[in-house]
């Protein structure tokens, strides 16, 4: 039993590693600095730095005649955002993002509720697999797959024909704005694909927030006379709201910034992401592209501020 000692304080052990661990134990701040320094520097310089550079660009303007950037501070570029052609793009994107977020939340909630309350063991694993599986395959592959699904020759048209419900689709496509020649070149198609692609980002935070709601709160509400609708309205929804807001931050901001989905599926009208792509690429108007990319940042800031004011984070 040589490992057992009768000393109350063990002697200091030798070796550099031991001395280092003793030192770090006495100076926990140094350890924190070592652990956090590199990622903070990375975030600070690469990420925030480039964001700042972007912001700076948006205050420059482009010389219409020479096509060169004029490095003088001006709000002229932002003024350009307000001309009808550009403002339409912003409006279109924000409305789409809002609708996608709302629809995602409505579809995701029951799924998340089932997973949080009822799914156990094997079914929980199947739930996670089902939600995450679409994230494992390439984003582009999924979008092109959807293009085929929604195309005039696609499975949706085929299935509706077999069900003798094609008139329903035709009636929908005949509607102004949401309609078009086929689903794959309509706003409806863009909307469906956005919802599909961002759905996991909505389900998972809602599920996490519902999982933290103790089951006996639901029982307490019922016990006090609350019917299921009242229990949802007064207990479940307020407590799940932080999760819904977290999920909506994903769906809203991802929709605001995406430029591939509306390009592949949808009418030819531009969304913010496409506008940024076009301005910095073909048009070579970096300041306007920068100004366009500032729009989602500002909108998200406003959105979070509003969510906080509405008390979305009170239950955190």
């Amino acid at each position: 039993m040589s490992a057992v000692t009768h000393q109350s304080i063990l002697p200091e052990r030798s070796g550099l590693a031991r001395r280092l661990s003793d030192f770090l134990w006495r100076h926990p701040h140094v350890l924190l600095l070592i652990l956090l320094g590199p990622p903070v520097l990375w975030l600070g310089i690469i990420y925030l730095g480039s964001l700042l550079a972007l912001l700076l660009q948006s205050f420059f303007s482009i010389d219409d005649f020479s096509g060169l950037i004029n490095y003088e501070f001006t709000l002229a570029t932002y003024k350009q955002l307000l001309i009808p052609a550009n403002f339409d793009i912003i409006l279109r994107t924000v409305v789409m993002a809002a609708l996608v977020t709302l629809a995602s939340a409505i579809i995701a909630f029951p799924i998340a509720y089932y997973a949080a309350r009822y799914a156990k063991g094997k079914w929980k694993a199947i739930f996670y697999l089902g939600v995450m599986l679409p994230l494992w395959s390439s984003y582009l592959v999924k979008i092109y797959a959807w293009k085929l699904i929604l195309a005039k020759e696609g499975i949706v048209t085929w299935a509706l024909t077999k069900l003798h419900l094609l008139w329903l689709l035709d009636a929908w496509l005949a509607l102004p704005v949401v309609g078009g020649n086929s689903l794959s070149i309509s706003y409806t198609g863009t909307f469906i694909v956005f919802i599909y692609v961002w759905m996991p980002f909505m389900i998972l935070p809602i599920q996490a927030s519902l999982e933290r709601v103790p089951g006996n709160l639901i029982e307490a509400s019922a016990d006090l006379g609350g019917n299921p609708a009242q229990t949802f309205k007064y207990v479940l929804f307020p407590l799940a709201l932080p999760g819904i807001v977290a999920g909506s931050i994903f769906t809203f901001s991802l929709t605001l910034g995406d430029y591939i989905i509306p390009q592949v599926i949808g009418s030819s009208r531009l969304f913010i992401g496409q506008a940024v792509y076009a301005q910095q690429g073909t048009a070579g108007n970096i300041p306007l592209a920068a100004a366009f990319s500032v729009v989602p940042i500002v909108i998200m800031g406003l959105y979070l501020w509003m969510a906080k004011r509405m008390g979305a984070f009170d239950a955190l």
Binding site: P214, N216, L217, E219, A220, S221, D223, L224, G225, G226, N227, Q230, Y234, V235, P238, L239, D314, A315
Partner: peptide, 27 residues
Amino acid sequence: VNTVFQDYALFPHLSILDNVAYGLMVK
């Protein structure tokens, strides 16, 4: 019939007054 739960099951997002008034509110 009303229950006093083992770990009380008070609604964390509501004030004490709203907690107590909950049963009356839903009625």
